[in-house]
Amino acid sequence: MAMLEIDDINKSFGGLQAITDLNLKVNEGEIVSVIGPNGAGKTTLFNLITGVYKPDVGDIRFEGNSITGLKPDQIVDRGIARTFQNLRLFTNLTVLENVLIPQHHKLKSTWFSAVFRTPGYLRREQQMREQALEKLSFFGPRLMSFRLYQPVYVLSYANRRRTEMARAMATGAKLLLLDEPSAGMNPKETAEITQIIKRMRDEGGYTILLVEHKMNLVSEISDRVVVLDYGQKIAEGDYQDVVNDPKVIEAYLGKKAEGDEAQNDQLTEGDGRTS
């Protein structure tokens, strides 16, 4: 049984059909990449899985149980966490607090025992701190020591991305949805984040579904690639097979018209000159 099963989901916003009859399976321990041109419905897919939107038709199952129609926080409880494309950190809070908040839903103590700092609460608080440090240490010393106590707004963009990934891991989820984890990072940082995603699967035991535009990252770590276009799945499989699929090439570059070849050549030449 696959970990995440998406059966024929549809989602439309008014007259715009964002997702059409989408089927997707993610097995445990896999890294699956979702790629596609802008507006293909990748982020909508993430929003559907995490409960921000409810599918019009269809069912989403996680570990065999339907999660359709659950609220985002209930879905996190089941074990799916996400990162956001344009960073949604708790900017005025410290890095440590950012990684402690996602563990709050696992806290069994009442607010009363939290106020009076009962031994049970203090023990759990200690566990939460250890968990937070463990998750942050995935990213090396960058977010450790004094950075733990810095508010997020002083961090660099790459460090914020790392914090967000650590925050998603800290929820205790088994399936992580990463929305463009390398956006805004330079090639060196992208290479590093690629290794980290790999380690998250190998050492952390997470299953990962990610949206990404950087093809070198996708080619390096994906077990499987799913291509979306206009809300429909147009290809699925190994990276090499997918990028050579004529439908995918069409979706990204457009159809080659008859007798268009000469023009195309000119275009590429022009590009060569300007760059």
Binding site: V52, D73, R88, L93, R124
Partner: peptide, 28 residues
Amino acid sequence: KLKYSSYGRALQGIREDEIAAEAMGVNL
């Protein structure tokens, strides 16, 4: 004490970003 407990952090998370707090499992 409430502010510096796990509950206080969750409340501050709601202040900072409601959508993110919900996506991190905070029951709004």
